[in-house]
Nucleic acid binder design. Structure first.
Lengths: 186, 186
DNA sequence: CACCGGTTGTTCAAATTCGAAACGTACCGT
DNA sequence: ACGGTACGTTTCGAATTTGAACAACCGGTG
C-alpha cells in the first residue's frame, strides 16, 4: 500500500487546473446559453447535431452517441426541446421501436440565433485565453484523454485508430460534418 | 451579424476535446470514488480540505472557496458527510453565525483509505495519458483559464500572481507525515 | 415458425444541483 | 445605543441527472 504513486507538484497543478477550468468554463458557457437563448448546453448540442444531419433528423441512439450523457437524460432533453417546439418526434419508418428527432423550423431559427453568442462565450472563456500552441497541445492531449476513456462498444474505424496512433486527432471529417455550428458554424 | 468570429478547425478540436475529456474524466473519477469509497467527488474534496486544515476544521465559507460549487450545495454535501459520521458540525467560537465543519476520526480514516484509489483513477484517466510537457502546458494554460473566470471578489494577493503561477496550497498539517492527499500528497 | 440474446426508447424513484428567498447575527457610522 | 447594511448559513422549491427496471422489437438460429 505504501506503493502509491502520488502526484508531484506539476501533476497536481495540472489536475487542479483541469478541475477549476472545467467547472468554471462549463458554468460560464451554460449560463450564457441559458439566459441568452433559454437552452441548456446539452440541448444546444442536440440542436447542433440535428442541424448537421441530413433532413435535420436523427435517431435517438445516434444522437446520444456524440452527446456525453445517458440515454434517459437524452429522452428528457428531447422532451424539453419538444415541449418548446424546437424539435418534433417521428417514429422511424424502418424500425418500429426507433424514434427520430426532427429539427423544426423554429428549432433551426433558435439555433441560428443562439450560435453567435455561444461561440463568443466559448472564446471568452477558453479559446481566446489560450496561445495558438497551447490550443494545439490541448486539442491533441485532451483529445487523446477523451478517446481513451471512450466506451469500448462502437468501432467507428477511427476509434481504434485513434486509440493506438493517438497522434493527431485528425478531424476525420468523414463523420458527416460537424462543420455544423457546434460552436462553430458555416 | 456576419461579424461573428467562428472557430477554425484547431480551435474547434480544442473545444471538442475539452468537452469530451471533461465529461469522461469526471465521470470516471467520480464513479471510482463512489463505488470504491462511497463518496462523491465534492465530498472527497471536502474531506481533503479539512484534513489539510489545522485542527481538521474549517468554516463553511472557507470550505466553499476552493470547492467549485454553490453554497447551498456545500450545505448539502456537509450534511451528507455528517450523516455518515465523517464530519461533525461545531459553531464557531469567534463568530456566532459561523459554523465549523470538523473532520472526525472516522472521516480521516475514510479519506486515508480512499486516497490511493482516487489518485490511481486520476492517473489512469488523465495524468498518465499525458506527456510531461503536455502536463506543464495544461497546468499553465488551464490554470490561466480558471483564474480568469474566478469571481472578482477575493484579493488574496493572488489576483495577479495566480495569473502566472497557479498556487499550490501548502498543506503540511494532516497527520504528521504523508500530508494531505488532495490527489497528491505532501 | 418459435426461441434467444441484444437493441431501442421510455418510465420511475431517488439523489443531486441550483438560485432565490429567509434568518439570525455582526459590523459601521452617527 | 440605534438603524442600516453586509455577511454566513440554511431552507425551499424546481430543474436535472442517473441507474435500474420495463416493454416492445430486431435478427439470426435451429
Amino acid at each position: 500500500m505504501a506503493g502509491t504513486r502520488w502526484l508531484d507538484e506539476r501533476q497536481m497543478a495540472a489536475w487542479q487546473g483541469f478541475l477549476e477550468a472545467t467547472s468554471r468554463v462549463s458554468r460560464h458557457v451554460e449560463q450564457q446559453l441559458k439566459e441568452d437563448a433559454g437552452l441548456s448546453h446539452p440541448q444546444y448540442e442536440v440542436l447542433v447535431r440535428l442541424a448537421g444531419a441530413p433532413g435535420g433528423e436523427l435517431r435517438m441512439t445516434d444522437l446520444a452517441e456524440g452527446l456525453f450523457t445517458s440515454k434517459s437524460n437524452l429522452t428528457y432533453q428531447v422532451g424539453q426541446l419538444e415541449k418548446h417546439g424546437l424539435v418534433r418526434r417521428r417514429s422511424c419508418p424502418t424500425d418500429v421501436r426507433g424514434v427520430l428527432a426532427v429539427l423544426t423550423e423554429e428549432g433551426r431559427d433558435t439555433l441560428r440565433a443562439a450560435a453567435p453568442g455561444h461561440v463568443a462565450a466559448v472564446r471568452a472563456a477558453l479559446i481566446d485565453v489560450l496561445e495558438p500552441d497551447e490550443i494545439d497541445t490541448i486539442a491533441r492531449a485532451l483529445g487523446r484523454v477523451g478517446a481513451r476513456l471512450r466506451p469500448p462498444g462502437r468501432d467507428t474505424e477511427e476509434t481504434e485508430a485513434a486509440e493506438r496512433a493517438a497522434e493527431t486527432e485528425a478531424q476525420g471529417a468523414g463523420s458527416s460534418d460537424s462543420g455544423g455550428m457546434s460552436t462553430s458554424s458555416s
